[in-house]
Simulated scan of single mutants.
Amino acid sequence: MPSQSPAPAASLRRSPFGTAPGGAAVACWTLDSGTGVRAEVLDHGATLRGLHVPDPAGRTEDVVLGLPALADYLADQPYLGAVVGRYANRIAYGRFTLDGQAHLIPPNDRGHALHGGPDGFHRRGWQAAPAADNGPDTAALRLTLHSPDGDMGFPGALDVEVVYRLTAAGTLSVDYRARADRATHVNLTNHAYFNLAGAGRGDILGHTLRLDSDGYLPVTAEAVPLGPVAPTAGSAFDFGRARTIGERIGDRDRQLADAGGYDHCWTLAAPEPGGAPRRAARLDDPGSGRCMEVWTTEPGIQVYTGNALDGSLTGPAGRPYPRHGAVCLETQHFPDSPNRPEYPATVLRPGEVYVSRTEFRFPHLGAPSTAAAVADGSSEASRADGSDV
């Protein structure tokens, strides 16, 4: 009886990607599942530059919008694939008061702070190295960043760790951890733009989306929450059953008209017992047969339909990114939480550990659609003493 070949092992490799202003070398790290899925991560901005996923017939496409060269990431661009922080999404007027002291974050989005300010984490060089304690079926990359006291106006020094893991089943997980030496606000997410047909292959209006949510946050014309959660039932924001993104994106609804599409936070149910991730969204592309589920420990998910894409950005394959050419599914706490005591809290105090986990699963590859085991201390619900980041 002929012997069977061992399954390919997952792997991680580093390749140069250019030199940042100031002379620091920037690298692209490739996480290979060994079974057909590959992720590319830059240590500039802890950026997910590419995610190559086979369709059911084995044809592989990069389903994340990326850019050809480092110079493109250093230029003005809409956070493609970056980890954004200290505070993802908007803080009204860039102002908040914490423990009786007022703080001002530089506004860069219609008078409000967006994604941590103009020099947020998406523009930083992160320290990168292979993550330890992974078996042969997982490739993992650990990125760390020190944010000093007063960085972009935020109080306290913050040490951040982001770990990307890619398993043989094709699941890409992102784990976030942070510690502060003074009370501060923390809200981290990844700003990847997804097109399951392939980056630059048309728009995503024909993709179907289901959100495990029955409420969302209506916003002002400047995209800051008005306040209370609104029910989605019967509205253009009702994705409680799967339907195409384009079905009602053109409704005569001021929420859609002001944003040019969807750019809103949907609220999610409480985390699973023990803080394990629960499903937040499922995205399907009928044309390619690819589907993706987003699982998270976070209380919200911001859906952004690439309303400002206009074809001026071109990907590594030479294809332009048109309007609605991708959708962002950003797991996070609610926008403007520092000014909204009724929202889930985003304060991190000394001695606590900020922890959050998001998983991108691809059921058409046969990956499980149940809650995966989560490493100790990786749930968002835990804000307690842990190992150093």
Results as ranks from 00 to 15, higher is better:
residue 153 G to H: 13
residue 130 P to K: 08
residue 186 V to H: 09
residue 113 A to N: 01
residue 187 N to C: 10
residue 212 D to K: 01
residue 142 R to D: 14
residue 210 R to D: 11
residue 152 M to T: 06
residue 179 R to N: 01
residue 129 A to K: 08
residue 150 G to E: 15
residue 155 P to N: 09
residue 117 G to I: 10
residue 155 P to Y: 03
residue 143 L to S: 05
residue 142 R to F: 02
residue 213 S to D: 12
residue 193 Y to T: 11
residue 183 A to F: 03
residue 195 N to L: 12
residue 133 D to K: 04
residue 206 G to Y: 10
residue 130 P to R: 10
residue 190 N to Y: 04
residue 127 Q to A: 11
residue 153 G to N: 15
residue 200 G to F: 00
residue 184 T to E: 12
residue 185 H to Q: 13
residue 180 A to T: 14
residue 146 H to T: 07
residue 139 A to P: 11
residue 197 A to F: 12
residue 110 R to G: 01
residue 111 G to W: 03
residue 179 R to G: 03
residue 181 D to K: 03
residue 138 T to Q: 05
residue 134 N to S: 10
residue 166 L to C: 04
residue 200 G to D: 13
residue 175 D to N: 10
residue 141 L to N: 06
residue 205 L to R: 14
residue 160 V to L: 05
residue 117 G to E: 13
residue 110 R to Q: 14
residue 109 D to P: 03
residue 166 L to W: 03
residue 162 V to Y: 12
residue 109 D to C: 03
residue 138 T to F: 00
residue 122 H to I: 01
residue 164 Y to L: 10
residue 154 F to K: 05
residue 127 Q to T: 11
residue 112 H to F: 02
residue 212 D to M: 01
residue 140 A to Y: 02
residue 202 G to F: 10
residue 116 G to E: 12
residue 199 A to K: 07
residue 204 I to P: 06
residue 204 I to A: 04
residue 159 D to Q: 06
residue 133 D to M: 07
residue 132 A to Y: 10
residue 209 L to I: 11
residue 116 G to L: 01
residue 157 A to T: 14
residue 203 D to I: 07
residue 118 P to M: 08
residue 150 G to W: 14
residue 181 D to V: 09
residue 159 D to W: 01
residue 193 Y to A: 11
residue 177 R to M: 00
residue 172 L to F: 08
residue 189 T to I: 02
residue 189 T to K: 00
residue 134 N to A: 08
residue 171 T to K: 02
